[in-house]
């Protein structure tokens, strides 16, 4: 359950977390770094205009204990508050679509579409509740969940406050594009020393997403 909640939160990161950051940093800031955080929050204002995003990504998983790394490539698309598509093209083809009421996954190996309703997966509600919460400007929730500090002019470090988040990640680093209108990189550090890095490129904000993209199995 909590694992799913983390996924939900992470899914929101590309857009919502950043938009929330400008107020949240002000709310959670310690006095010595207040000016920097406030400044950072001001830089993130372009995110407010983002209604949809499409990007390609490269996800690198490092299993430290096994000294093994796995690289996954794919693309993603997100409509704010509605749905998210996460597709991988390598090493296997797979697509999953999250919406408020359901979760669907298709993979090329089995060729099957697996569907789950919100009743089976309460975390789907979490996903959209959080999203609404953050987009509506209720940023206290974010401040409750993470302590936030800027590492440099383009990077924020989020340290989970809540126990159930700490079980999964010790910290999350978030690097923005120079224009501050999208995330360029996300790095999740896990408790057991494993890590996961996501690099986003070819990012397109507010471009129409073809309806065909939301069909499973993909055509």
């Amino acid at each position: 359950m909590h694992y799913m909640r983390i996924i939900a939160l992470l899914l929101l990161c590309p857009l919502s977390l950043l938009r929330a950051a400008d107020t949240a940093v002000a709310a959670t800031a310690a006095p010595p770094t207040l000016a920097t955080l406030a400044e950072f929050a001001a830089w993130l204002r372009p995110l407010a205009a983002v209604r949809s995003v499409q990007a390609e990504y490269r996800q690198t998983r490092l299993l430290r204990s096994l000294n093994f790394s796995l690289s996954i490539h794919g693309h993603m698309a997100q409509e704010q508050g509605r749905r998210l598509l996460w597709a991988t093209t390598s090493p296997m083809r797979s697509t999953c679509i999250f919406s408020e009421d359901s979760f669907q996954q298709w993979d090329a190996e089995t060729g099957k579409v697996t569907s789950l309703s919100a009743a089976d997966m309460p975390w789907l509600k979490v996903l959209f509740n959080c999203q609404k919460q953050w987009l509506s400007g209720d940023l206290d929730a974010l401040a409750t969940d993470f302590s936030i500090e800027p590492l440099d002019d383009h990077t924020l470090r989020l340290t989970p406050r809540r126990q159930e988040f700490q079980l999964f990640f010790t910290q999350i680093e978030m690097r923005f594009r120079p224009s501050y209108d999208a995330i360029a990189r996300l790095v999740f550090s896990e408790k057991n020393g494993d890590s996961m890095q996501m690099d986003f490129f070819n990012i397109r904000n507010n471009e129409p997403i073809p309806e065909q993209l939301w069909m499973l199995p993909p055509k």
Binding site: Y3, I6, I7, L10, L11, Q59, R61, L63, L70, I72, G74, M76, W86, T88, M92, S94, C96, Q105, D107, F168, F169, L186, F188, E190, K191, N192, D194, M196, M198
Partner: peptide
Amino acid sequence: QALMLPAAPLA
């Protein structure tokens, strides 16, 4: 399949 999900912890 899980590996293909975004940010799924493998533990």
